[in-house]
Design a binder for these strands. Structure first.
Lengths: 337, 337
DNA sequence: ATCGTTCCTGGAAACGTTCTTAAGAACGTT
DNA sequence: AACGTTCTTAAGAACGTTTCCAGGAACGAT
């Protein structure tokens, strides 16, 4: 057994001395006599038969694959999502295929076009930037899509979003409770979905707690990456002296931590730091990084389930789920080691 | 244009008033008259035609997809590989599909079986554990495979390997030059390919530099992860007092860093720490982690090129490439901040 | 005018599967 | 003994492409 040559139903059928359709029926669990089933299985085993995925897809229209599109495989929040999603879709009988698009909308549009060729039964995506063109492409896609992240109100797609604003509120509240007054924001690009949400959340929280902010306390990194975060934090420290810094994600938070260390400021004594996403990176940092858990694992899980349901019933009403945030307090704001 | 309905060659042909074969020829760059080409393109545009991947695959036998199988998406060394590979294969006209297998050989065997159904034209894999069954599955696969990592000598597959032994030698040499004498190893499971290579490299380097080691200086984490590394390092510190620790990868190195901090030892004053793989995690750690660059990016790049070549010419002689290691000195061994 | 080339186009087969339809066998009922 | 029902199996169409092959048309050469 387990020979590996080209094999197909016809060869198996010939070997077993039965018809092609009978082989297909037996192998897919249809009704058949003991005798027939035995012969078929024997022949299939002997030939090391493996069904041809494309042929099946062409006939059935299903691929049994789900694609997860992520903007940056280096961002630990996506790693967390991948982990979660893999398990869920596997349980439902799907293979997960991860596709790394760039950060720009065009590459996501390209991916959508390519998926419409029939590479997958559904798409899980978390677009960083949402343009008219991308929305149009998502709308006109004939593939079920579930979006992880916020979406314009008029786009009728299933989506699972975080509540950045409340999340930042949690961070600010925690910092205020410690007597911090000059709370800075190291944000990612504001033309991105998370970037704009976090800026808005920051401004509203600052106001709500009766604090003040200023242009000097807000810097924008060129990307949600460590390197960009270092640069942005350096600029921030050059133009103001905050007593707390909120990084718009953990990578930016860790960058702030490192830059503060390089500048000789103590964390948390001189400056407290909070990140967002509560990924492994927060745990691994030194000092460990307090982080707002935006529920990325939960979001990914919910999104995967939503997608599986939508594939099963395309006509189901559109769901919009919001996952509430939580705060994980660690050393960078005086939490336990 | 850009309607998105079900469309196929037949519909386009009908709309353009030509034959199906002519449409196919035009769209795939065959020879055709100006007039015909114009009509076809117009019709295709208007219908928003997208070719059906599976149908094409069934006819041509190609999928234009390459699969990268990684054991753990959370390991930054794989992230580095994904980044590199994505670019290379895209340039050659392939889509990269990332598949996250578990650490056990069986899940890799399953993946191989599933790929033999025709999901991809080639496979890039980096198996953690190599068993007889896995070797057998790789041998009998009808899919071109390139292995990133060491392979038994009698397996005739293209592969690109690191030189762990020399790499560890570099680390030991560096540590010895600083006067370190009690060099410990925090290894991953020794029944894995990298685990056994690193243990062997460590022992030989220790001997070469005239040092001694003992069972107390060697611990084995249950996996190549941060959490397992913490536990293993804690055990190490409980049973001996090394003046240097080599982590078998960066995650273990960072874990050692954190555990030392928790135990109140200063790095690098009391204990120097070296990791392996030279990933982002080494850069982000505090203090930043000296790490042996095993050339993961170069290995991934070479492997991708090898695979593309092998797909093009299946009969080409088997290549075995070794990438030499290098040392990136950082704060954890007294390097620059 | 006939023939041989070259160029363009259409017909049709084939890739491997699933599924509908139908034919035949076995068996029980009237 | 004739008939209806149920069960098992086979035949064949269809999914959407690519590509081989052949039929013309256009054209120049003999």
């Amino acid at each position: 057994m387990a020979e590996t040559k080209k094999s197909n139903l016809q060869l198996v059928a010939a070997k077993a001395g039965v018809s092609v359709s009978s082989v297909s029926r037996v192998l897919n669990g249809g009704s058949a006599s003991e005798e027939l089933a035995r012969k078929v299985r024997e022949a299939a085993d002997e030939l090391g038969y493996v069904p041809h995925a494309s042929a099946r897809t062409m006939r059935t229209g299903r691929t049994d694959q789900i694609t997860l599109a992520v903007a940056d495989v280096g961002n630990p929040v996506y790693v967390q999502m991948m982990r979660t999603v893999t398990g869920i879709v596997a349980k439902a009988g799907y293979r997960l295929v991860v596709s790394s698009t760039g950060a720009d909308p065009q590459s996501q549009i390209d991916l959508l076009a390519s998926l419409n060729r029939g590479y997958a039964d559904g798409l899980l995506m978390s677009p960083l930037r949402i343009t008219e063109d991308l929305v149009e492409a998502m709308r006109s896609s004939r593939l079920p899509i579930v979006v992880i992240g916020t979406l314009p109100a008029d786009v009728a797609l299933d989506n699972v979003r975080a509540d950045s604003a409340t999340g930042i509120g949690l961070a600010v509240e925690h910092l205020v409770a410690q007597g911090r007054r000059r709370i800075a924001l190291v944000n990612g690009p504001v033309d991105t979905v998370p970037g704009s949400a976090r800026l808005a959340g920051y401004l509203s929280a600052i106001e709500r707690f009766g604090l003040t902010t200023s242009a000097e306390l807000q810097v924008t990194a060129s990307a949600f990456t460590y390197k960009a975060g270092r640069k942005a934090t350096a600029a921030l420290l050059g133009q103001s002296s905050p007593d707390a810094i909120i990084g718009a994600n953990d990578l930016l938070g860790v960058a702030a931590l490192k830059e503060l260390a390089a500048a000789g400021r103590r964390v948390p004594e001189d400056v407290a730091v909070v990140g967002m996403d509560d990924t492994d990176a927060a745990e691994l940092a030194t000092p460990s990084l307090t982080s707002v858990d935006l529920g990325s694992a939960k979001r990914a899980k919910a999104a995967a389930k939503l997608l599986i349901r939508r594939i099963a019933e395309p006509g189901a009403p559109v769901s919009r789920i919001v996952i509430p945030p939580a705060l994980s307090v660690r050393e960078s704001t005086g939490g336990p080691a």
